[in-house]
Design a protein around this nucleic acid. Structure first.
Lengths: 150, 150
DNA sequence: TCATTGTTGCAACCCGGTCGCAACTAGATG
DNA sequence: CATCTAGTTGCGACCGGGTTGCAACAATGA
């Protein structure tokens, strides 16, 4: 069972060399973290995990690398409705945009892919004549479990 | 020409007394700013405008009042794709959710109301059995003018 | 192997937002 | 109207995510 194209390990590294971006020990560690992350890490978590691979990695290098990845459209930045403070979360960009839902009670994050979302973006591009580069739909509310038990 | 329901001046104040929230000089000033704002003020701008009405208003009171308004679902908090730094923007909640589009080149913010967005939210509520309390769709990209002139 | 240029760690810094506390005041009660 | 009290305020200190200037360093290309 082949992995979907965006899940190929090392994809981020490949993008770097394609674009002539210099590869370093520290970046390799951070990219590895991003590539193997289950989901939604904040900068502090990324730093902690990267330090396990290369202990020399510094906080500022993490921020600088995240900025670089963002600028190159390789990761998405999320707020997750600021359920856990003011920080940001990061995830590898995948082909299909997805909606993030955050339960305001238990804090669980859910994802949802929808054709209607794709239609909506098409409508925006057409009706507003606006070229979409990045989009973020975040929803706060109550998940099934939390609604049941109250 | 009557104003739409959500545009009635003093609506925020009314909500406060309905819910038994104490009204103070300072809150009155801040609410007045929110009600008469054209759009998308950040905390610093709200403070500046509120100080013109009541110079005693303090920064922390602005933040506390914004939190209160947010908790009561009377305002929406926006990031506007962090085009101008890390802060947040606030606007009165209106009946109809709208999409915010931020031009990555000129920084202009546009709004768009769409039935498809409403359909999408309905789909989420139904398919995910998730009760939506607040939603935020922000899009970054390039506006017509900026696409033309480059 | 060397030179160039981009990258790093460090420490200081910035700034949006929060907090503890004593003084104050809105609004309920008599 | 005077009084009481719980909620609110201004203030200053603080917090934490994110940034920056700089000297040391390392990845590429020749």
């Amino acid at each position: 069972m082949p992995l979907p194209q965006t899940e190929i390990p090392g994809r981020l590294q490949a993008h770097f060399s394609e674009r002539g971006i210099r590869m370093t020990q520290q970046r390799r560690a951070i990219l590895q973290v991003m590539e193997t992350a289950s989901k939604h890490l904040d900068a502090a978590q990324i730093l902690r995990k990267a330090k396990k691979i290369d202990p020399s990695v510094d906080r500022s290098t993490v921020y600088r690398t995240l900025k670089l990845l963002k600028r190159n459209g390789l990761i998405d930045e999320l707020d997750l409705m600021h359920i856990h403070g003011e920080g940001h979360y990061y995830e590898r960009k995948v082909n299909r945009d997805h909606i993030h839902m955050a339960c305001l009670r238990c804090g669980k994050i859910m994802e949802f892919v929808s054709d209607i979302f794709e239609n909506l973006k098409q409508q925006v591009e057409k009706d507003c004549r606006f070229k979409i580069m990045v989009s973020r739909l975040e929803i706060g509310g109550y998940c099934t479990a939390c609604r049941a038990q109250q």
